[in-house]
């Protein structure tokens, strides 16, 4: 199945992005396709390359990048939400792209399921 994911919260403060990541990884392991992950609200904060967690902690941004690169997931960051919060192309981590909200609606139309993670 084709699965789309919506993430509404940023890293480290809320569990949402951790849950979404573990869900996405499990979906891929089961042979499903995670077609797109859309980052909205504070979720856009998952995409900054300036993120530097302590060494013994999970690197939430980098592991999204890796999962996307390994499995061809389209990581889309909402432009309006991103600009509000200081996320731009110059500080965007690899594997992410900034685009419009239409990408979320499109994910809903194209995917078989859309799962939301937030607060």
């Amino acid at each position: 199945m084709k699965i789309g994911i919506l993430i509404n919260e940023g890293p480290y403060t809320h569990q949402a992005t951790d849950s979404a990541y573990l869900f996405a990884r499990a979906a891929i392991e089961k042979g499903h396709q995670v077609s797109r992950v859309f980052f909205y609200h504070d979720g856009v904060n998952n995409s900054t390359r300036l993120t530097e967690p302590p060494q013994d902690d999970r690197h939430i941004v980098n592991r999204w990048t890796k999962l996307a690169q390994d499995h061809g997931i389209d990581l889309v960051v909402c432009v309006a939400a991103a600009l509000r919060r200081g996320i731009k192309d110059e500080n965007l981590a690899p594997g992410f792209r900034i685009s419009g909200l239409g990408q979320l609606i499109e994910a809903g139309i194209q995917a078989d399921r859309l799962v939301t993670f937030g607060d």
Binding site: M1, I3, L22, F23, K30, V115
Partner: peptide, 20 residues
């Protein structure tokens, strides 16, 4: 369920709603 079971639940139901 584990995360794999979570995935199965999502695919077994036609729609899902997250009560945020």
């Amino acid at each position: 369920v584990d995360y794999g079971g979570f995935v199965d639940l999502v695919t077994e139901h036609a729609t899902c709603q997250s009560w945020l």
